[in-house]
Amino acid sequence: MEKNQEPIQQLNEIRSLMERSSRFISLSGLSGVSAGIIALIGAAAAYFYLDLGWRYTDLDAYSSAINANRFDHAYLFLITDALVVLLLALSAGIYFTTRKARRKGLKVWDHVARRMVINLMIPLITGGLFCIILLYHRLVFLVAPATLIFYGLALINASKYTFHEIRVLGLSEIILGLIASWLVGYGLIFWAVGFGILHIFYGLMMYYRYETSDISGDPKL
């Protein structure tokens, strides 16, 4: 039977095991940064394509777009743009997270990863369906705020199984989404802040906290 080490080592090992077994710690901050950059590019694409300008992204612009019969094009473009952003951000996120796991010698798709993804997906899919319903009712101006709110709820739900920063990020997204649904018409700019700037900010914070030094944190993490 292997003998126990020093108390401080024992405590470190207990902490590491408790954390590793209940939280998804392979999530890389760079996933957030890349998702943020991709979101900003996507928002810029929408801005230039729709030729709305930040000041004009209000209800009138949406309705004038409808009246000018440009609506269906704009519609199609926005949906495609959003889906491309989602796909690219997800791929980049998976890439950086897999890389981090491999470097730490951890399995990526383990029981905590599964739990985290399931808990993330419940509010996220609900939000996705809700946005489709909003589009069906032609309530386009509420789509961007709704994506922020549901994404925030999804993050809070998933944060039980990963870093606590994700919870704070989720709260920020919800607050932003609520403001965005109040100040109707600035959807694109709030969306760019929520999915772009916040992702980059929290991604960098997590990257510097957990991935640059092995001294400050638990070396086993």
Binding site: M1, E2, K3, N4, Q5, Q10, E13, I14, L17, M18, E19, S21, S22
Partner: peptide
């Protein structure tokens, strides 16, 4: 029971899940 590293490990994992 906690003298063994494996048993302590088991207890750590079960305490967190």
């Amino acid at each position: 029971q906690f003298e063994s590293r494996v048993r302590l490990g088991i207890m750590s994992v079960l305490a967190a899940n």
